[in-house]
């Protein structure tokens, strides 16, 4: 719903940054993050609005960041691709493929060195699995038995390039196995299935059994970057999209909850209304917030923090 709002607002040209929407990929973010504690640490990538929100990131600061405002989560210096909320240990997102994966491994190393039981999670896409740094990260995490969960969201495309043009016919989760990491494949369009498999993974990792790799099959509805559909480009077709849309993970979860009498239609509509209000508040907050002052340009190049003595 947050991103449907972004789709609506983007043509106003006030959100002036590359924006990679997670519409269609909600179940992976929610299914994993529902199992995490506040002190668990999450890193994402360029398509990470869903991860930020699922980890509990502040919606107003998120929206303000998209608008480039001083009240944004990165004070207007990050935008959609650089989201952070340290109050919930959502520790950052970047668009260099695989770039944050070793950072999650490093956060897990900290946890191990500090004798804590919090874990780290790295979200990344199928194309990141082609980067050498993924292998370096898996190798080290496996070697040191670090508490880190690797979550590969396989949405079949890197920008407009299909998986078949980039990887041989072998499933991505097998890369984890090659590094002696417990690895699993699951349907990323089934929120409950993701939740269940992530729950087991998180418990196992927290108990000190080392890293786990999950490959979750998913699909983005909109174009690689921006608010539109892109079927006219011809690299994928609407039939394929409609097939995935039919399996809409949110619709599916709603139906399962209605069927199990966990949720009523009224409650669902109530939730929608409440979320809509929150989104409207966040958009107003973002629009009403001031832009950063000129001096902000020069601050934070270096940390001015004095020496720890």
């Amino acid at each position: 719903m947050v991103e449907e709002k972004i789709v609506e607002l983007y043509p106003e040209q006030e959100i002036r940054c590359p924006t990679h929407l997670s519409i269609g990929e909600e179940a992976t973010a929610v299914g994993v993050c529902e199992n995490l504690r506040q002190d668990d640490m999450v890193f994402g990538y360029h398509r990470s609005h869903a991860h930020y929100l699922a980890k509990g990131g502040n919606l107003k600061a998120f929206m303000a960041e998209l608008y480039g405002k001083a009240t944004g989560c990165s004070r207007g210096k990050g935008g959609s691709m650089h989201l952070i909320d340290i109050s919930v240990n959502f520790l950052g997102t970047t668009p260099i493929l695989g770039g944050t994966v070793p950072l999650a491994v490093g956060a897990a190393l900290s946890s191990q060195m500090q004798g804590k039981d919090n874990i780290a999670v790295a979200f990344f896409g199928d194309a990141a699995a082609e980067e050498g740094i993924i292998h370096e990260s898996l190798n080290f995490a496996s070697l040191k038995k670090l508490p880190v969960l690797f979550v590969c969201e396989n949405n079949l495309y890197s920008v407009q390039t299909p998986l078949s043009a980039r990887q041989p016919e072998r499933e991505i989760y097998l890369l984890g196995k090659a590094h002696a990491v417990d690895s699993y494949l699951a349907d990323g369009y089934d929120a409950l299935k993701v939740y269940e498999i992530a729950k087991k993974a998180v418990e196992k990792i927290r108990a000190g059994n080392g890293p786990i790799f999950l490959e979750l099959l998913t699909y983005r509805w909109r174009e690689h970057c921006g608010p539109n559909y892109d079927f006219e480009l011809g690299y994928r077709n609407e039939v394929e999209f409609l097939k995935w849309k039919e399996k809409d993970p949110i619709k599916k979860l709603k139906e399962e909850m209605l069927e199990a009498n966990i949720l009523s239609n009224e409650e669902f509509e109530g939730m929608r209304e409440e979320i809509n209000r929150e989104i409207e508040d966040a958009v107003s907050f973002a629009k009403d917030s001031p832009f950063p002052e000129k001096d902000e340009l020069y601050s934070n190049v270096y940390s001015e923090q004095g020496h720890e003595k």
Partner: peptide, 12 residues
């Protein structure tokens, strides 16, 4: 990779 690990450790 290990430089990234060190950055992650430094952040935490």
């Amino acid at each position: 990779g290990i430089t990234g690990v060190c950055i992650g450790a430094a952040l935490t």
